[in-house]
Simulated scan of single mutants.
Amino acid sequence: MAVRAVRGATQLEADEREHLLERVAELVKEVLRSNDLTNDDLISVVFTATGDVRSEFPAYAARLMGMTDVPLLCARELEIDGSMPRVVRLMAHVETDLSRQQITHVYLHGAAALRRDLSHVYAVPDEPAGSLAGAAPASEVRP
């Protein structure tokens, strides 16, 4: 069993508490599903948010999902001119038998455009909230 890091991000349509909680929960669930992980496989999760996200701590969404014994941390993303607004990112440290090449990183909604350079990405462009329709398998994501 190895320790691996899984990346992911989602973009909010608006900085509203319930919307943030929904989008972050969707992201966490998809990271777990795409990599065949459970809460027991999680070592820790670091969440970052852009400076325009102020309605709630992203880690609270994970707590609401039952991640009460997983160390969670929230931090502020760097404020770079021209960067995408209203983005929540995560980096989950996990124990898994997957190789680095087998890890699937998850980018949802507008954040799907952030990391198309990765070969194993589950990217979902902007769709109605909660929809995974139109998701491209990692092998089909193109820059």
Rank of each mutant, 00 (worst) to 15 (best):
A75H: 01
A75L: 12
R76L: 14
R76M: 13
R76E: 15
L78A: 15
E79Y: 00
E79R: 09
I80W: 06
G82D: 08
G82S: 09
G82L: 06
G82R: 05
M84E: 12
M84G: 00
P85A: 03
R86A: 04
V88W: 00
R89H: 10
R89F: 04
L90A: 05
A92D: 09
A92H: 10
H93Y: 12
H93D: 04
V94L: 10
V94K: 07
E95T: 13
E95M: 11
T96F: 05
T96D: 06
S99W: 07
R100S: 14
I103E: 05
L108D: 07
L108Y: 04
H109M: 02
H109F: 03
H109W: 06
G110Y: 02
G110M: 02
A112R: 04
R115E: 13
D117K: 08
L118C: 02
L118D: 11
H120P: 01
H120Q: 15
H120R: 15
V121W: 00
V121Y: 00
V121F: 00
Y122L: 15
A123P: 05
V124Q: 12
V124D: 02
D126R: 14
D126K: 11
D126N: 11
A129I: 12
G130S: 11
S131C: 09
L132P: 01
L132G: 14
A133W: 11
G134N: 10
G134W: 09
G134I: 10
